[in-house]
Simulated scan of single mutants.
Amino acid sequence: MTGRPRLADVAARAGVSMKTVSNVINDFQHVSADTRARVQAAIDEIGYRPNLSARNLALGRAGLIALVVPQLDMPYFAALAGQVLQAAAKRDWVVLIQQTGGDLTVERDALAGRFPQRIDGLILSSTAVGSAELRKRTDRTPLVMLGDRNYQGAAQHVAIDNVAAAAAAVTHLAELGRRRIAMIGSSPGDRRHPRLVGYRLAMKAAGLPIDDRLIKPVRNNLGEEGEQQMTALLAEHAQDPPDAVFCVTDWVALGVVRALRTRGFRVPEDVAVVGFDDIPYGRAATPTLSTISPDRSAIARLAVDSLQAQFEAAAAGTAYEVGEQQAAFRLVVRESSGG
């Protein structure tokens, strides 16, 4: 055989019609197991690869989904993008990746479907869009929201249980005997921040007082912010510094560790530190960083599967009920908290 194998070549090798080969490739259920096996064997023998453009056209698909995140240079989002690429490839989708920089206008453009190409679905990790705005959305492109915000049923939402995850981190610190546990990454008055909610619940469950002066916000999730806020905490509480710190991201936690060590505090002997996200840098830091590790693979798979289900529902003219889907997480104890 010369040239690229064709659908007709597969049909001839398997002794079936081209329509039957197409049905097998598109995983139609009414093909018998014996016929399916013969067609698959023929595909493998001659090295046939489906024309995805033609296949997508036949299925009414663009063959493209979009992943829109705040910052691609943040390790968490870079790792998540890799998992989304893998999950999408299993469904023959190519992924368009876009960075918003936390710009609300860019997020709104994505929600409105303003992309250079038609897409079959959108996965968005937003820093600004809320449930009220999502309810006003007119674009019908399948949508999955990521992140720790509460969208109150306005869109399909995939995340870990951020309240439980934060509580697990703080409970770990309390069980080590730490009593003045600070939190860096939220304003004390932000009652909707799920990781702050988890912090407060764990402190209460451990019978520890909650001192709002030990809760510091960050403008963005950078190590420099963590270092700055930890430096401020040490200055403000020179006589009675915290003996543990829970940070909303690993990036922030690495800055916290730097602030502590440059000012003569030992980690974890004097101050234990736990981060969030399990980024690769935390595993190579000195000390290695205790953290909450979200199942990014599951987050990506659930998001892509939901896009597929929404796409199929729209094609069939049936309703898709949006809701919350949670992926697993685990506490990883390393050197920064005595592991």
Rank of each mutant, 00 (worst) to 15 (best):
R330A: 14
G207F: 11
A328W: 08
A81E: 06
R301K: 09
F28L: 09
G60H: 07
A154F: 06
S126L: 06
T141G: 13
G198H: 10
G15A: 06
S125D: 12
C247M: 04
E175G: 10
R149Y: 07
T20F: 03
S53F: 11
V332N: 09
D278G: 03
S125A: 12
R36F: 14
N162F: 07
A37N: 15
Q310S: 00
A316I: 07
G264F: 00
T100K: 08
T171E: 12
R213G: 09
V170C: 01
S186A: 15
G153P: 03
A37P: 12
L254F: 11
M145H: 09
I123Y: 14
A81N: 04
E224A: 08
L254K: 11
Y320A: 07
V31L: 01
V218E: 08
M18Y: 00
M74I: 11
A174Y: 03
V248A: 10
D103P: 01
G226L: 14
V332I: 15
E224F: 01
G177P: 13
A314R: 03
R200F: 09
R219Q: 11
V274N: 15
E321Q: 06
D103C: 07
A244M: 10
G177W: 12
Q29A: 05
P188Y: 15
G338T: 06
V267A: 14
T35Q: 14
R137M: 02
S306C: 09
G3D: 00
L67Q: 04
A328R: 13
L146P: 06
V256L: 11
P116S: 11
G189R: 02
T141K: 08
D109A: 14
M145P: 07
A235T: 11
E312S: 00
Q83F: 08
G338S: 11
Q98T: 12
R283W: 05
D148N: 15
T20G: 02
A42S: 09
A159K: 13
E312F: 00
A154V: 09
S336D: 12
I181H: 06
R55M: 10
Q326D: 07
A14R: 01
A87E: 14
V170D: 01
L59M: 15
V197T: 15
R140Y: 05
V39N: 05
T291N: 04
D305F: 02
I97R: 04
N26A: 07
V332D: 08
T231H: 03
T127P: 00
L96A: 08
V84G: 02
S293M: 09
E107F: 02
K136N: 12
A41K: 07
L331R: 13
P287T: 02
R114C: 08
P142W: 05
P294Y: 11
P241F: 04
D148I: 15
A303K: 14
S336W: 12
R180L: 11
Q326V: 10
